[in-house]
Design a protein around this nucleic acid. Structure first.
Lengths: 216, 216
DNA sequence: TAATGTGAAGCCTTTCACAGCA
DNA sequence: TGCTGTGAAAGGCTTCACATTA
């Protein structure tokens, strides 16, 4: 493997490979070819191999990939080999949905704390998490929480973002289109439900381009 | 303007332009240059102009764009010039969050119905929508509902997707990574919260590439 | 003069073809 | 033989420079 700039798109696909591998690994499958993995996820087999090749050589020619080993390797690349902790801010419907989402653990991610500024919500228990006052966000660093999830209404987004920035988080997943950063030290990924919904009609028959089903 | 294949990425940005324009329009601003719009959204001004150029020539050299006219034009491109109706399936926390999300209306989108298979939820009113049994999904077409939103748990995703397909929807926004299509006639956009959260650690200082804040 | 619209260059990503290894 | 890993070709998107227009 030679050094080369790693495409952002390849990084974006790694969690999908991880998901596919975890699924077949749970079914007891010991090894897997790039074809199998591609088929499972709807990618092409050369795409799979190319993506891995950016990070190293993980497979055995003629045989394929060792499921468990590849899982470990992708975990290492994504820095998920130690459990990562995230704090969620905004315990509304969306916040609750994320808190109760069962899927993070398998990836080595743990939502370790939840915050709100509503007196009625503070103290409430969701699973084994107790909702805290947002003022306690400053304790994140010392609790080993490096990531934030923003599920607050629009008005509160910027101030939440600033608070997370001050708390020293390294990355933020935001469901709000209403923050305009201000902090360049953390990676911010924004999910904007409205923006995605709203472009569906464009792909309606008359002028649709390629309705490739497995789009992001 | 000459014909050229329209980049999917350009289409993906159109709703953002629309959002920016709606904001300044509400503030009473009559016109706007590509520089202003770019600054507002964190894009580059040539990107803005290039994106519009795929669809036509909407501006006035030396002056800029007429806010209201451009809003109408983007709406037309995105086929949002008539109100589009969507049905939501799965009235859990996530479903409720989407149902109560106030932002769709401004884009010409309306969530017009909600479905669940839980007896206790059927009949419940959320805003002016009454939750219906999933068996009634078949009525979508005749009610003029062309889009579906899937907010059901993983196990139910594929069957929900199939039901929406049978109901003849043209597009689906899915929050579930667990459906494997089967219908090629509808555009499917999938939002996978876990996949996005899980790649945050990768961008942590040691090997981060470019922590451009305004990433998707 | 000030801003648009666009060909062309440059860069990034995907696809392909195949050498090489187990 | 079967599958990996990768250079090279092809394709797609962004950036740039500038001719053009009000």
């Amino acid at each position: 493997m030679k050094y080369r700039k790693i495409p952002d798109e390849a990084v974006r696909r790694l969690p999908f490979y991880l998901r596919g591998l975890l699924t077949v690994w749970e079914q007891g499958r010991k090894s897997m070819s790039s074809r199998d993995l591609a088929g499972l996820l709807g990618f092409s087999h050369w795409q799979v191999r190319k993506d891995f090749s950016y990070f190293g050589s993980f497979g055995t020619p003629g045989k394929g990939y060792d499921t468990e080993k590849l899982i470990r390797q992708i975990r290492t690349i994504l820095k998920l080999n130690v459990v990562r902790k995230a704090a969620l801010v905004g315990v509304g419907n969306l916040g609750l949905a994320v808190l109760k989402y069962p899927g993070f653990r398998a990836y080595g991610f743990q939502i370790a704390a939840a915050f709100d500024n509503d007196r009625r919500k503070i103290g409430r228990k969701i699973g084994d998490i107790t909702v805290e006052d947002v003022s306690r966000l400053r304790t994140l660093k010392k609790r080993g929480i490096d990531f934030g999830i923003i599920t607050v209404p629009c008005e509160a987004a910027q101030r939440t973002f600033d608070a997370l920035a001050r708390a020293g988080v390294k990355g933020v997943l935001s469901f709000s289109p209403c923050q305009r950063t201000g902090l360049e030290r953390a990676k911010v990924i924004t999910i904007d439900i409205a923006m995605d919904l709203v472009r569906l009609p464009y792909y309606t028959p008359a002028n649709r381009q390629k309705p490739k089903s497995g789009d992001q």
